[in-house]
Design a protein around this nucleic acid. Sequence first.
DNA 1: AAGGCTGGCTAACGACGTTAGCTTTTAGCT
DNA 2: AGCTAAAAGCTAACGTCGTTAGCCAGCCTT
Lengths: 186, 186
Amino acid sequence: MPRAGLDPAVVVAAAAELADEAGLGNVTMGSLAERLGVRAPSLYKHVDGQADLTRRIATLALTELGDALRDALQGRAGPDALSAAAQTFRTYAIEHPGRYAATVRVTSVQPGDPLADAGTRVFESLAAVLRGYRIEQADTIHALRMLRSLLHGFATLEASEVFQLGTDIDESFTWLVGFVDRGLST
Amino acid sequence: MPRAGLDPAVVVAAAAELADEAGLGNVTMGSLAERLGVRAPSLYKHVDGQADLTRRIATLALTELGDALRDALQGRAGPDALSAAAQTFRTYAIEHPGRYAATVRVTSVQPGDPLADAGTRVFESLAAVLRGYRIEQADTIHALRMLRSLLHGFATLEASEVFQLGTDIDESFTWLVGFVDRGLST
DNA sequence: AAGGCTGGCTAACGACGTTAGCTTTTAGCT
DNA sequence: AGCTAAAAGCTAACGTCGTTAGCCAGCCTT
């Protein structure tokens, strides 16, 4: 019985792939173990059960999303930055639906948690976008929450195919980004 | 063994209450049966399994939400209507987190489904709000999707306690409604 | 080379969803 | 009112899943 050479990172990466392919709900200990060529109980040597696993997937997702946002925002400001951030956010959620779903399913977070740190970096990227607009100090938090709600809501609704076909969703998204830009510019 | 006098409506109502109290994830056939004073398999006489059950909860939720919106929008137009609709939406999602969660978990819908009808009525109420603003015909669908994304995203994030404490969430919400109003008014 | 940690395994339990099949109540028809 | 059949409850049982316990083999250290 040869070793499989697993460690937490490998397990979580496989789980994230599986989540994207089959849906987060189908990331079962059994199916994940099978994909890794191992029996289900062996996973507990690397991960603290399913709750811990989805938490780690969420952390991975927020880290990746944060990196993507920082990449996209380099050298951009104002409407350009807003558009880039929004597109990046949306693209990530669509291309990694399982990972993204994990970020939603997560139960509340204590500070010091790596998940909290990863979330904070995403948050800061969105804050950086707003810095390109003249917004009252007191309103920044409100604008941030709005931006987040909008991006999250759009991504979620698009992923669950709630939007009726008929009018192009890309078109709606760019319209929506333009709407926010105009609103923040006044 | 006396009859319990159940029917689908009673079962779904109990399930919706349980979902709001304990979370949708804890609406198990066993716990629901216990609340109804019955054994789990008996529920299958009224409901087609768990998928059907959450689908019915979602239908109930969208029906209630649609009714609440229609009530709130009577005799209102423009900013007034927008504010009333937004508050109604948010309040419903907060007061009925389990029901609201069911509307998200639902798999795609065929026309003719009562769920689709209930969803359409909610949709039409939001469309009615937009009728109070001068919006290009072609942009209506975009504005509708934006409004929906925003309300849904905000409700979801608030429910999962993602917003950090620090600044009042009510305040952010009214700011956000004002932002949309100004944007739609130009 | 010995020995201990580490990462795999099997076995087993409890919770859950679901099906099958029995029994009793109840409602409707004559 | 009595009979019958459908409806609504029940118990028993199965499969899946998450998880724990406890065993054993391979690798790293010395």
